[in-house]
Simulated scan of single mutants.
Amino acid sequence: MRAAYIEAFGAIEDVVRVGVRPDPAVRATEVVIQVRSASVNPIDHIVASGALQAVHPVALPLTLGNDAAGVVVGKGEAVTRFKVGDEVYTRVAPVTSGAFADYVAVDQDLVALKPGTIGFDAAASLPLVALTAWQGLVEHAGLSKGQKVLIHAGSGGVGSIAIQLARHLGAHITTTVSADGAAQAREHGAHHVVDYRTEKFEDVDGDFDVVLDTLGGEVQERSYGVLKPGGVLVSTVWVPAAQEAAERHGIRGEPFFMHPSGEQLETLARLVDAGTVRPFIDRAYGLDETADALRHSASKRAKGKIVIRVS
């Protein structure tokens, strides 16, 4: 099969290759998906750089890619949830990757039928960001109707989905974006949009029940002070000092790493088909252009998700 892969760590232009790789081996509980579309996430170029080897080591050569949408073309003998011909989407196992390829083998528990109202590009754009938004707001924050939530980076992949989910949950939503992302954030359901380049979010609004932070650093430090006592800061970027800072401000810190879940993807598919959640795609590339897609992601200029059309 053809795939985009790395044999060493380093700069994208130096290490990303597109060529022939072995077809995936299939375990008893796995389905084989012929990938129609995959999507790019920041984790993809970070992994390629080798920056995560100390905490999440991966073996080389490695086929890149975490999100895929396609058609089931084979399955292990213990698979009961899917049949050949099913159109599905998935966030593959973190230690496996492999979505930037003609075929990927994924455990059935990490797979769901794709939303029927959207195509493969849009479906592939969803898993990692939608699962991150859902788990942050629902599992960890317990966001509920009438609460106030601050969502950072509201025009990014996670942020744009998080705004829509928060709207579905009945929350009052403030988000930080650049000026050119403001219209998109309002369209997705934000009640109050803060241009982070010209405004300080702590000067505009406050007394939040929940902050969703995917940025860390100085933005995270400034976010402690806008939460009401007992509020919760949910973050995908956490350092040891953050917990002490959260306690000092009388709030709850909830660090988390997204975990793949076919069951949650089923829930999200229903929300998409109901019109509650709408994917937003920035640009599509071909498999041979994977390095270009990764560079575009690393530039942080994308508004919405970057998609790779595999077949």
Results as ranks from 00 to 15, higher is better:
2 R>M: 04
3 A>G: 11
3 A>P: 08
5 Y>C: 02
5 Y>D: 01
9 F>L: 02
11 A>R: 15
13 E>T: 14
15 V>C: 08
20 V>E: 14
20 V>Y: 08
22 P>G: 06
23 D>M: 13
25 A>V: 15
31 V>N: 08
32 V>N: 06
34 Q>M: 11
34 Q>L: 09
36 R>A: 09
38 A>K: 05
39 S>Y: 04
40 V>C: 06
40 V>S: 05
41 N>H: 12
45 H>R: 05
48 A>Y: 10
50 G>K: 12
54 A>N: 13
56 H>Q: 15
57 P>S: 05
57 P>E: 08
62 L>R: 14
65 G>W: 03
66 N>G: 04
66 N>C: 01
67 D>Y: 04
70 G>Y: 10
76 G>D: 01
83 K>N: 07
90 T>M: 04
92 V>F: 01
94 P>V: 07
97 S>R: 15
98 G>T: 07
99 A>M: 07
99 A>F: 10
101 A>S: 12
102 D>T: 03
104 V>K: 07
105 A>V: 03
108 Q>E: 15
108 Q>K: 09
109 D>C: 06
109 D>E: 13
113 L>W: 07
113 L>I: 12
113 L>F: 06
118 I>F: 07
123 A>P: 03
124 A>P: 06
125 S>Y: 04
125 S>L: 00
135 Q>Y: 08
135 Q>L: 07
136 G>D: 05
136 G>P: 07
137 L>C: 02
138 V>T: 10
141 A>R: 13
142 G>K: 13
142 G>N: 12
151 I>S: 06
153 A>E: 08
155 S>H: 12
156 G>S: 06
164 Q>A: 00
170 G>V: 03
171 A>C: 01
172 H>G: 01
179 A>Q: 12
179 A>N: 05
184 Q>A: 12
186 R>I: 10
197 R>L: 09
198 T>S: 14
199 E>Q: 15
199 E>C: 03
204 V>H: 13
205 D>R: 07
207 D>V: 04
213 D>T: 12
217 G>V: 11
217 G>M: 11
220 Q>F: 11
223 S>G: 00
230 G>Y: 00
236 T>H: 03
241 A>H: 02
242 A>T: 15
245 A>C: 09
246 A>C: 09
253 G>I: 12
255 P>V: 14
255 P>K: 13
256 F>D: 00
260 P>M: 02
263 E>I: 11
265 L>P: 04
270 R>D: 11
271 L>R: 10
280 F>H: 13
280 F>A: 08
280 F>V: 12
281 I>T: 06
284 A>L: 01
286 G>S: 15
294 L>R: 05
295 R>Q: 15
295 R>T: 10
299 S>T: 05
301 R>H: 13
305 K>A: 10
306 I>D: 03
308 I>Y: 00
309 R>H: 03
311 S>R: 14
